[in-house]
Design a protein around this nucleic acid. Structure first.
Lengths: 241, 241
DNA sequence: ACTAGTCATTGATTGCAATCAATGCGGCAC
DNA sequence: GTGCCGCATTGATTGCAATCAATGACTAGT
């Protein structure tokens, strides 16, 4: 994996008309306050498959993803891998971690992020309680999400897992003000497999099953058009939060 | 399931020599501050299998468990159940929830808890920032725990899941200042199964496997003595946080 | 003491997803 | 254009955990 790209600064005032401002931590601050965030912010970009932080690395930065997609994953000594989540623009990296990163973070596709030195961020959090509240709220949401995944991994069949995955992606796209249909799948099948606790082959067969049953269409491998959302929801069994 | 037991108040000053004070939220407050917590606190007790809160109930109270054990679970329409976690004395109930409980909470064994009205708690949190920080820290820990479970559920074999389960219980007992060996298993096999995404039969067979391989002893169904902790750790593959 | 009921274990069988293997489908270098 | 490589799909087979079924240990009720 390539090393991190060199850091550079964005011109001042950029946060004010940022695409993800309303979804990200920054939403906790008023127009005249984001300036404080922007002052400690450093822009970064990643190429596809570039590693941002390794499991066990000290947490010196926290990040807001502004474009592209990241995966959070960890691996067993024998190579088995589990992806604990995908980050979409507006999402925050570092919610679960105290002083070290507990998961490896890699770019699924070319990505841009805002990096905040944790020391500076800790300082800001004390000045702006709303920032702290927002981070806490985002952590709670991430916890609910992770608990939902426990049900998905522990009790759902492969097709059910895929159905719930597609619905969650669709819903999150909507929350992130993107079209919720068709669902974009920037990640390869292997990532979906490692997220859903399956093999690539089973993921592929599950896609085919959903397509043959008329619940989705697959114009190409990275696009899933939801045809019958209700049937898909029935399959998934649980309402995504 | 029986209804909640009647509420009653503990005499003043009880928090000061509480068994779980050092593990619970309360640890964030000094001796002269816990008083504020105690003033809004209501003691409750639950019998085994009694329901504390149902999935979807409004979150009017948050709780600290002081004795016994709770399970947090959710169920699919067809009855499949997933337990997202077990609460031990000192643990906090309500970390993941905003205004409604997202999981059902039930007593595994007779339990005692401190109940705090959320409105009052929200007020205290504003007065004592350390309380808020502690809650946020506990939420982050819960998130790491839930993400570890994703790996367990998605990628580990049944014996590996059980090994990691026993190690986590052992470690948490130690953290809660209880002996870390033998491991006490107050919950029935069905709960372990629904936590690990297995069937009771497979859980039972996995116990037998670990016993026959000499990694544990089973004096009785609710006690597992760890004989070879290293081998167990190797099996589990991941270090519990 | 006897019965009924719950829970854990063990055995026999089945079924589904993992594994193994082959093919297809672009994209890219040259 | 050709060949190569990564990725997705499909097919054949295997193996493991779920399912089905029976038994045993223990508790509570009468």
């Amino acid at each position: 994996m390539a090393q991190a790209a060199p850091l550079y600064r964005l011109p001042c005032g950029a946060c004010l008309d940022c695409d993800v401002r309303s979804m990200a931590v920054c939403a906790a601050l008023e127009d005249d306050e984001v300036d404080a965030l922007e002052r400690i912010m450093i822009s970064r970009s990643l190429e596809a498959n570039q590693v941002l932080a390794e499991e066990g690395d000290p947490k010196t930065y926290v990040y807001t993803l502004t474009s592209g997609m990241l995966r959070l994953c960890s691996s067993l000594p024998d190579g088995r891998r589990q992806i604990s989540g995908f980050l979409m623009p507006g999402d925050y990296l570092g919610l679960a971690d105290d002083d070290v990163h507990t998961r490896t973070s890699e770019a699924v596709a070319d990505a841009k992020l805002c990096a905040f030195p944790v020391r500076d961020m800790d300082g800001l959090v004390k000045v702006y309680p709303r920032l702290s509240e927002r981070l806490h709220g985002m952590t709670r949401a991430a916890l609910r999400h992770a608990q939902d995944n426990q049900m998905i991994l522990g009790r759902l069949t492969p097709v059910e897992r895929l159905a719930s995955f597609l619905l969650v992606l669709s819903r999150r796209a909507r929350e992130h003000k993107q079209p919720d249909n068709p669902v974009l799948l920037p990640m390869p099948r292997a990532d979906i497999a490692d997220y859903l606790g399956l093999t690539v082959e089973t993921v592929s067969r599950s896609f085919t099953k959903l397509r043959n049953d008329g619940l989705i269409r697959l114009p190409d491998a990275h696009t899933a058009e939801i045809v019958d959302r209700d049937a898909l929801s029935d399959l998934a069994g649980i309402e995504p939060h």
